[in-house]
Amino acid sequence: MFNLEGKVALVTGGNGGIGLGMAEGLAQAGARVVIAARNAQKSAAAVDALKALGSDAFALAADVTDEAAVTALFAQLAERCGRLDILVNNAGINVRKPPDQLSLAEWHQVMDTNLTSAFLCCRAAYPQLKAAGGGKIINIGSMMSIFGASFAPVYSASKGGIVQLTKSMAVAWAVDNIQVNAVLPGWIQTALTDNARTQVPGLHERVIARTAAGRWGQPKDLAGIAVFLASAASDFLTGTAIPVDGGYSIAG
């Protein structure tokens, strides 16, 4: 039920952090994993790690905020793999400023990277997933899809949009046997959140105090949910937004 052998998975921003943690889970389950990212050196290291897990992995350079680049990315994918079964929209950035200090350029930068890129990739993936007889789309939201944060207004807006985009696509494409779900990571220890701990005083202590598991998450903590949502085990699950946060979102 969780076997992904013969499946092709594309993970945007999959060369580090949460994206790589999910990619490693997919690789261990038997999928051929394709990394789409801009940093060639990081992508090469990620591909080596995935190959060590037995995946016939490779990387494609792409700016997923650019429509033409996304079109070219999926054309290359079709040429090299001949099919697509799983899309993970993980590319993301953050600008930590209160709303009154946020520039319009910063707003567009975060929205384009976190939300518009997911729309572009889903739209480009749809014909290939449909041609394969169905498939899985996993969009990466955040606990900020649920909560607001004074220091992350545009990030929160983009991740809230991910949840609503997920629901709309789930309804639109269920007839094509395409399940679309979102994962809402909590505080996961990555390069992105390392910066947060520097920029937001007291953040580390507040996270530990509120998280029921008593620790920050690790990228590997996202591997299992990736395999579940990419596999036949989730065939009757669509339009959901699942927190993976060690209990952060349920704390009183």
Score class of each variant (00 low, 15 high):
residue 20 L to Y: 02
residue 91 A to E: 03
residue 28 Q to V: 14
residue 73 L to S: 07
residue 31 A to D: 01
residue 47 V to G: 00
residue 96 R to Y: 02
residue 33 V to K: 05
residue 28 Q to T: 14
residue 101 Q to P: 05
residue 40 A to L: 08
residue 81 C to R: 09
residue 38 R to E: 09
residue 42 K to I: 07
residue 84 L to C: 12
residue 58 F to N: 08
residue 56 D to R: 15
residue 99 P to I: 15
residue 17 G to P: 04
residue 73 L to M: 08
residue 19 G to A: 03
residue 90 N to P: 01
residue 17 G to V: 11
residue 89 N to K: 07
residue 87 L to W: 10
residue 59 A to M: 10
residue 88 V to Y: 06
residue 56 D to C: 13
residue 34 V to T: 06
residue 29 A to H: 03
residue 28 Q to L: 14
residue 43 S to Y: 14
residue 56 D to L: 14
residue 100 D to Y: 07
residue 55 S to T: 05
residue 51 K to C: 11
residue 77 L to S: 01
residue 15 N to S: 14
residue 31 A to V: 11
residue 84 L to F: 02
residue 88 V to I: 15
residue 27 A to E: 06
residue 28 Q to S: 13
residue 87 L to D: 09
residue 32 R to A: 01
residue 71 T to N: 01
residue 75 A to I: 07
residue 47 V to S: 03
residue 51 K to L: 13
residue 17 G to A: 06
residue 78 A to M: 09
residue 100 D to W: 05
residue 34 V to P: 00
residue 98 P to W: 11
residue 97 K to E: 15
residue 93 I to Q: 01
residue 21 G to L: 03
residue 32 R to P: 00
residue 14 G to Y: 02
residue 33 V to G: 00
residue 81 C to V: 09
residue 65 T to V: 07
residue 85 D to T: 03
residue 48 D to P: 02
residue 82 G to L: 13
residue 87 L to M: 12
residue 65 T to N: 05
residue 56 D to F: 11
residue 85 D to R: 05
residue 99 P to T: 14
residue 92 G to K: 00
residue 52 A to G: 15
residue 61 A to I: 07
residue 92 G to W: 01
residue 70 V to S: 06
residue 59 A to E: 06
residue 42 K to L: 12
residue 40 A to R: 13
residue 82 G to C: 13
residue 97 K to T: 14
residue 70 V to M: 08
residue 75 A to K: 07
residue 39 N to W: 04
residue 20 L to P: 00
residue 29 A to G: 04
residue 38 R to G: 10
residue 60 L to H: 04
residue 55 S to A: 11
residue 94 N to W: 03
residue 95 V to R: 10
residue 60 L to I: 14
residue 25 G to H: 03
residue 22 M to S: 10
residue 61 A to G: 05
residue 72 A to R: 13
residue 81 C to A: 15
residue 62 A to H: 01
residue 71 T to Y: 01
residue 56 D to A: 15
residue 29 A to R: 04
residue 55 S to F: 03
residue 62 A to D: 03
residue 89 N to S: 11
residue 74 F to D: 10
residue 44 A to C: 10
residue 85 D to H: 11
residue 62 A to N: 00
residue 65 T to R: 12
residue 36 A to L: 04
residue 81 C to E: 15
residue 36 A to N: 06
residue 74 F to M: 10
residue 55 S to W: 05
residue 87 L to Q: 09
residue 45 A to W: 01
residue 20 L to F: 06
residue 35 I to W: 00
residue 75 A to M: 05
residue 95 V to F: 09
residue 50 L to K: 09
residue 67 E to Q: 13
residue 15 N to I: 07
residue 53 L to I: 12
residue 53 L to C: 04
residue 61 A to Y: 00
residue 56 D to I: 12
residue 52 A to W: 02
residue 41 Q to F: 04
residue 78 A to L: 11
residue 83 R to V: 05
residue 51 K to T: 14
residue 100 D to F: 06
residue 54 G to A: 04
residue 83 R to M: 04
residue 39 N to F: 02
residue 60 L to F: 08
residue 46 A to T: 08
residue 88 V to N: 02
residue 74 F to L: 14
residue 78 A to H: 12
residue 32 R to M: 05
residue 97 K to P: 11
residue 20 L to D: 00
residue 66 D to W: 01
residue 13 G to M: 08
residue 41 Q to C: 00
residue 94 N to D: 13
residue 77 L to A: 01
residue 83 R to C: 08
residue 45 A to P: 02
residue 26 L to T: 10
residue 62 A to F: 01
residue 16 G to K: 15
residue 45 A to Q: 14
residue 97 K to R: 15
residue 73 L to F: 10
residue 65 T to M: 12
residue 55 S to G: 01
